[in-house]
Amino acid sequence: MCRPQTSKQNYPSQVIAVIEIVDLCKSYGNVDALVDLNLKIKKGEVFGFIGPNGAGKTTTIKILATLTAPSSGEAYVSGYDVTEEPYKVRGLLGYMPDFFGMYDSLKVWEYLDFFAASYRMPQAERRDAIENVLSLTHLEEKAESFVAGLSRGMRQRLCLAKTLLHDPELLILDEPASGLDPRARVEIKELLNGLKDAGKTIFVSSHILPELSDICTTFGIIEKGNLLLSGSKEKIMEAIRGVRRIKAKVLSDTKKAASLIESEKGVGSIKIDGKEVQFEFNGSDLELARVFENLVTAGVLIVGFSEIETNLEDVFMKITRGELA
């Protein structure tokens, strides 16, 4: 439950992270959208914020983007408090919302010129900045086109171009690939990879994990306003090391093998798939070797016994199903 705002502590910490979130809470009436969220993202990190719809991703992003005030807790962007110094924060970040509209009757360059002026960019610098972002997002040829005539993917790229105009050090992208066709998704992914290589710190949310798994350096998994797990891909995999999925392929008597496995210590849910017995195992390597030995001793003919590689998506599914929380 969110607590009322008390006096602020002496944040941020000594080493300034690009994003630092401390005990952040947000309630809408009796509904807690965010519960004691703590997060630190360093410069150059590409942070994937993953969770199902309604988990609290957009609320967190809107607080960071200075669009929503938290109920309690603090959030900092490069050391600036998002509630107390919103204009400093706005100058440092580029924000791309999940759903957005555009000014359809403007031309592409006029649209970008409007935002460049809105970020107080001197007129002499605007032309170059606009040309740069148009080239980065492969929209050079559309400069004179009206926004109304752009496809969904182009609009998404134009919004990203707008986000990059003032060369922000932090990019906050809410579901940047949602609703795009596969080709446009790949284009956005390539763009994000380019920005990652350029050293930008990126905070990107998605409810679809594969979309982000190969771009992001760190991840946070959120559900019902609670951050369940965060850290590098390796750290997250490590956190779920306790539960492994094992498959044993037998020649015959699958039912006997399943009942033998089920009686072993540390074995969780079990499933028979043809000649294969798959089970969850929560024990050491030695204990796993004992399971194998006991099967052989009982006369089960085994042709394969191995660990099923767990990918990040499985972890996400498990965590959000509450299996590991």
């Binding site: 983007a65 669009l67 100058g91 957005f100 509209g101 000014y103 809105s118 970020y119 919004c159």
Partner: peptide, 14 residues
């Protein structure tokens, strides 16, 4: 209505 207000608000315009 056309969801452009967020983008306008995060600029440096007062």
């Amino acid at each position: 209505e056309r969801r452009t207000i967020d983008l306008l608000q995060v600029t440096l315009l007062g």
